[in-house]
Amino acid sequence: MILDPASGTPLPLAGQLLRLHGPGARGGNHSARRPTLAAELQQEQLEVITRPHSSLEALAAEIRAGRTYADSLARMAGARIAALATSPLPVTPHATRTGRYDVLQEKFALTAREQLTCGFHVHVSVDSDEEGVAVVDRIRPWLPTLTALSSNSPFWNGTDSGYASFRTQAWNRWSSAGPTDIFGSAQAYHALVADLAGTGVVNSPDFDARLSANHPTVEVRVADVCLESRDAVLVAALVRALADTAAREWESGLQPDRVPATILRQGAWRASRSGVHAELLHPVTHRPATAGTVVATFLEHVRDSLDDAGDTGYVEESLVRILRQGTGSTRQRQAMERGGLAHVVADATSLTQQEPAGNRQELVSASC
């Protein structure tokens, strides 16, 4: 979010910041040394994109560098950057004027006009569309846990929404958003995408996990932008391990859980509602269980992949911290109690730029 440093109100300055960034910004020039920035649906937000990485340490460094750089541009325009998934203060967003976004604004009306949300998308490379669809089919029950661990959007239009991730609720207004049923093959996946386009409603589906249209990757899209960079690194590590585990299951002939998407939607709702502070839907039994139990089950599910990548220690330490201290949503509510919504934004602005002490062992590419 691009914010007024005094009031905390979002400011429609993305175009100005991208002009300060210079040529090639909106095209996503990954070859440049400087961080890659891009426009988003609304002018009050800015997307920061990393290059692909194989190590968490390198990914963490680039996430921090991207946030610092975006904030330096915002300061030139009299603003600041904060990693918030929704605005704590009321806002009337200003649409980014491009052909694609103009169509969305016209077609989806209030849904598009109100859609000022910041997600965290993680891409993991796959060898083929068949492997990618096999991964998408097998990671479905585990995705709500990522929403819970990344939850960072308790406020909406100046009030406490009652949700840990209200971004998830706002995002699911889009017609193709949410969990999917089993595809079974790349052919079936592409046939459904073509059928969706044939309805005249959507050209690119907003599935929780999908094959990227532009890269040889699976793109996981369920996380809020994380208030702290170390939490973003955790989510990336878990997504990579989840995809790797799913690919191994596919190669061994293990079939995906055929739980209906309607049930998975209930798991996503629970994760959105309470984050890690109440029961979640267990990814195996699909019945309520404590957040600690669900997180422990997730960890055991991906442990072999984490071990192979050398990420187990970082992930275990991070999960213990989040279960003990809470997520960005927890931090926002604590700031609200101390000083109101303006303090929420000030605290988030400070924490977005702060590199936490400890946990420095910081694959994948990310956009937030």
Rank of each mutant, 00 (worst) to 15 (best):
L3Q: 05
P5W: 05
S7F: 06
P10S: 09
P10Q: 05
A14I: 05
Q16D: 09
Q16I: 11
R19Y: 06
A25Q: 06
R26Q: 10
R26H: 06
G28F: 13
S31Q: 12
S31N: 09
P35R: 00
A39H: 12
E40K: 02
E40R: 01
E40G: 03
L41S: 12
L41M: 15
E47D: 01
V48W: 00
V48D: 00
I49E: 03
P52S: 01
S54P: 02
S55R: 14
A61R: 09
I63F: 00
R67P: 04
S72Q: 14
R75D: 01
A77V: 09
G78M: 05
A79F: 02
A82I: 02
A85H: 00
T86S: 12
P88C: 00
L89D: 10
P93I: 04
T98M: 14
D102N: 09
E106K: 12
T111I: 15
E114D: 13
E114V: 15
Q115I: 11
T117L: 12
C118E: 01
C118M: 11
V122I: 01
V126P: 03
E131P: 11
A134D: 15
V136Q: 07
R138L: 14
W142Y: 10
T145R: 02
A148G: 05
F155Q: 06
G158L: 10
A164I: 00
W171G: 03
N172H: 15
S176Q: 08
S176K: 03
A177H: 10
P179A: 12
T180M: 10
G184A: 07
A188F: 05
H190V: 14
L192T: 13
A194E: 15
A197M: 14
N203P: 01
P205C: 02
R210F: 03
L211M: 01
P216S: 09
T217P: 07
E219M: 11
E219K: 10
R221I: 11
A223F: 01
C226D: 07
C226S: 04
E228G: 07
S229E: 03
D231G: 11
A232S: 09
A232W: 00
V233H: 07
L238E: 00
V239M: 03
V239K: 01
A241G: 12
A241W: 06
W250F: 10
S252R: 15
P256A: 13
P256W: 07
V259T: 14
P260D: 09
Q266L: 11
G267S: 01
A268H: 06
W269E: 06
R270H: 04
V276S: 05
A278V: 04
E279G: 08
E279V: 08
L281W: 04
H282C: 08
V284T: 14
V284Q: 14
R287H: 10
T290H: 08
T290V: 08
A296I: 08
E300K: 13
E300P: 04
S305E: 09
L306K: 04
G310R: 03
T312I: 06
E316Q: 14
S318P: 02
R321N: 02
R333Y: 04
A335H: 13
A335S: 15
G340D: 07
L341Q: 02
A342K: 12
H343T: 15
V345S: 09
V345R: 06
A346W: 09
A346F: 13
D347G: 07
A348V: 03
L351A: 09
T352K: 02
Q353G: 06
A357R: 13
N359R: 12
N359Q: 13
S365M: 11
A366Q: 00
S367G: 06
